[in-house]
Design a protein around this nucleic acid. Structure first.
Lengths: 135, 135
DNA sequence: AAACAAAGTTGTAATCATTACAAATAATGA
DNA sequence: TCATTATTTGTAATGATTACAACTTTGTTT
């Protein structure tokens, strides 16, 4: 929790109870959870927590670069507290999202539109994971 | 239209009027339109067209690999009739989606999960395009 | 510490994209 | 033609996300 708090401060986000809780959840659950999963995971401990707060918090965190918003699933967003450059693999059978490490510069130096400024890069793979295909 | 029809047949999709119309729309509008835009663009010519049909058709086309489904925008899906490997750039100010050409093999040979099988790769860039940032 | 202002949280009610479904229509094959 | 199957259509649900206004907490000024 102390780590989460410092993490927020580093990113210039005021560390409220709820924000610390959400950030801590993401730092300790490397499963790319949805809003629903984060909310369900925290509501036991923080009985007054509102789902709207989880939405608000994740928006704040994402805009400050403290977390990543993944739109890999199509139906809903997933969140990642690990923000170093890496790709993601979605198993379309079990729904799990795996991290995929990248060689440095893998996402750089493309033919981007003239004069554009890049704020975010996402590389998504979709398919069937080993566990699922061996069943 | 004849091209769209052949295109569908190549992909093993029965070429109904509606499917030809949607495919043709995508082949002649390289703007990565949403369902809404495709529907609005076609309903004049095909007065009985239903939005559900556009959804159904795009699902069919996407599953056969005849079109690409882009989840870059987060709020809604966008569709691309150009299916050769390439990346996309979303300007978060004007909402336009640009094609970004890739060097061959840019998306290959990563540290994917053991034994996994990849069906789809999407590389998304987000930022401000040149036109918008020069205003 | 009291009073005030600003920021954050909460619950409820909208909104919007997408899917479910069942009836109607069109295409296909015997 | 008749029967079977695929496709289309409109409407009604679903589900994720946002809008909003009341409430609470935090921070600041005196």
């Amino acid at each position: 929790m102390i780590v989460a708090k410092q993490y927020l401060e580093t990113h210039g986000i005021r560390p409220s109870q709820q924000r610390i809780a959400v950030m801590h959840y993401l730092l300790t659950h490397r499963t790319h959870p949805s809003v629903e999963e984060i909310y369900d995971g925290l509501k036991g401990e923080y009985s007054t927590l509102s789902k709207t707060t989880v939405y608000n918090t994740l928006k704040t965190l994402s805009e400050s670069g403290a977390v990543l918003t993944l739109n890999i699933a199509g139906t809903n967003a997933n969140y990642d507290g690990y923000v170093a450059p890496h790709a993601h693999f979605l198993c379309t059978r079990c729904g799990k999202i795996y991290d995929v490490e990248l060689a440095h510069s893998d996402l750089m130096g493309k033919n981007l539109p003239e004069g554009s400024q890049i704020n975010d890069v996402q590389l998504y793979y979709k398919g069937i994971c080993g566990r699922c295909s061996s069943k």
